[in-house]
Amino acid sequence: KKKREHFRQLLDETSAITLTSTWKEVKKIIKEDPRCIKFSSSDRKKQREFEEYIRD
């Protein structure tokens, strides 16, 4: 659960993310961040979390 919170925090702090951002764009920006790396090695899982984040 904590990894998820850190991942969401990373998304919060990434000012380039807007409601129209695509995962492909965002992934390029955040892929080097340790919170992104630690969250999951599964790209699909990160994408799902990102899409949920955008909906919230």
Rank of each mutant, 00 (worst) to 15 (best):
K1W: 08
K2N: 13
K2P: 05
K2H: 04
K3W: 01
K3H: 13
K3F: 09
R4N: 03
R4A: 12
R4Q: 09
R4M: 04
R4E: 11
H6D: 15
H6Y: 12
F7N: 05
F7K: 04
F7M: 04
F7R: 02
R8W: 12
R8M: 02
R8E: 05
R8F: 02
R8H: 09
R8L: 06
R8I: 06
Q9F: 01
Q9M: 04
Q9A: 11
L10W: 01
L10N: 05
L10D: 07
L10K: 06
L10Q: 00
L11N: 03
L11A: 02
D12C: 05
D12T: 06
E13V: 02
T14F: 15
T14Y: 04
T14G: 01
T14H: 05
S15K: 14
S15A: 13
A16L: 08
A16D: 14
A16R: 05
A16V: 07
I17T: 05
I17M: 04
I17Q: 01
T18D: 12
T18Q: 11
T18E: 13
T18H: 15
L19D: 12
L19N: 08
L19F: 09
T20P: 08
T20L: 09
T20Q: 07
T20E: 10
T20C: 08
T20R: 08
T20K: 10
S21E: 02
S21K: 02
S21G: 04
S21P: 03
S21C: 04
T22C: 05
T22R: 03
T22N: 13
W23D: 03
W23V: 05
W23I: 07
W23A: 03
W23E: 10
W23G: 08
K24W: 15
K24H: 14
K24M: 13
K24R: 08
K24L: 12
E25V: 02
E25N: 00
V26P: 01
K27P: 08
K27E: 11
K28N: 15
K28T: 08
K28S: 13
I29W: 12
I30S: 02
I30N: 06
I30A: 01
I30K: 03
K31N: 14
K31S: 14
K31V: 07
K31W: 10
K31Y: 10
E32C: 06
E32H: 12
E32K: 04
E32P: 00
E32N: 04
D33M: 14
D33Q: 05
D33G: 03
D33F: 15
P34V: 06
P34W: 06
P34S: 07
P34A: 09
P34Q: 05
P34T: 13
P34R: 04
R35F: 02
R35L: 00
C36Q: 04
C36V: 04
C36N: 05
C36R: 00
I37L: 09
I37Q: 06
I37W: 08
I37K: 14
K38M: 14
K38Q: 15
K38A: 15
K38S: 14
K38I: 07
K38P: 01
K38N: 15
K38Y: 12
K38H: 11
F39Q: 05
F39V: 03
F39I: 04
F39E: 07
F39D: 06
S40N: 07
S40D: 11
S41I: 08
S41W: 11
S41H: 14
S41Q: 08
S41T: 11
S41L: 09
S42L: 04
D43R: 00
D43F: 04
D43S: 01
D43Y: 00
D43G: 01
R44N: 15
R44C: 12
R44F: 13
K45N: 11
K45V: 15
K45Y: 10
K46P: 04
K46Y: 06
K46M: 08
R48T: 13
R48W: 10
R48Q: 14
R48G: 11
F50N: 11
F50A: 08
F50Y: 14
F50T: 06
F50C: 07
F50Q: 07
F50P: 08
F50S: 10
E51G: 04
E51V: 03
E51R: 06
E51A: 07
E51M: 01
E51N: 08
E51D: 13
E52I: 14
E52N: 12
Y53I: 00
Y53A: 05
Y53D: 09
Y53E: 07
I54Y: 01
I54T: 12
I54C: 08
I54H: 10
R55N: 12
R55I: 07
R55V: 11
R55Q: 15
D56T: 15
D56S: 15
D56A: 11
